[in-house]
């Protein structure tokens, strides 16, 4: 390891603890938001990021404009199915990827101070960076190729949760367990 988090100055351990607590809280709210707007199943994710409505069935524009009309209630007009179209996905990718990279980098710096083997460290760092890539690759593939790729986005989300949980658990154990003798 490049430094020893478990034996580091108490100020460093305090900083890392608060950082993990803050990130953990934001992840909990992130999961809540995903539940509200996109869902945790492949069908809901495909509806959110795939082509709009019935157009999911036809990725190519029709030869002539197709018109469908259906009765709708006032309540249904108020209910908006959250759908991310191409423009919004471009914007989402642009604003979220840098933040995901910074979070992965910060968690990776914590990994560098953990008492784990070089191979395990490399694997955890790879997981931390793979998660956002899977997340957004899934969204784009769902949009452009097939709704079946929604599973990649779900894998990205779970990978993000797993990466955070592993880093937080190891770091908190090394920093605050009774055997830790940091000053």
């Amino acid at each position: 390891m490049l430094y020893d988090l478990g034996r580091s100055d108490i100020r460093v351990r305090w900083l890392v603890t608060l950082l993990l607590a803050t990130l953990g809280t934001s992840y909990l709210f992130g999961a809540w938001m995903v539940g509200l707007y996109a869902g945790f199943g492949t069908t809901k994710v495909a509806e959110t990021y795939g082509a709009a409505g019935e157009a999911m069935m036809m990725q190519m524009p029709p030869e002539t404009t197709m018109v469908t009309e259906r009765p709708i209630s006032m309540a249904e007009m108020g209910e908006e199915q959250h759908h991310v179209d191409m423009n919004l996905l471009v914007q989402d990718t642009h604003v979220h990827m840098p933040m995901y990279a910074v979070i992965a980098a910060v968690l990776s710096v914590i990994v560098l101070g953990l008492a784990v083997s070089r191979g395990v460290g490399l694997a955890i760092i790879a997981l931390l960076f793979a998660a956002p890539w899977l997340d957004f690759a899934g969204m784009w593939l769902t949009k452009l190729v097939s709704p079946r790729f929604a599973v990649v986005t779900l894998a990205g989300g779970w990978a993000m949760a797993l990466g955070y949980t592993v880093v937080a658990a190891l770091a908190l154990w090394e920093m605050w367990s009774p055997r830790s003798d940091g000053k």
């Binding site: 019935e54 157009a55 029709p62 002539t64 404009t65 469908t68 007009m77 191409m86």
Partner: peptide
Amino acid sequence: RFAARELHLSSADSRRLHDAVGWEPADGV
């Protein structure tokens, strides 16, 4: 009463919109 009329645009209609105002719906609806 209310009704939702969805138009899944052809390439030609998307182009007409784009030529008119420089915009077309990203998902063609």
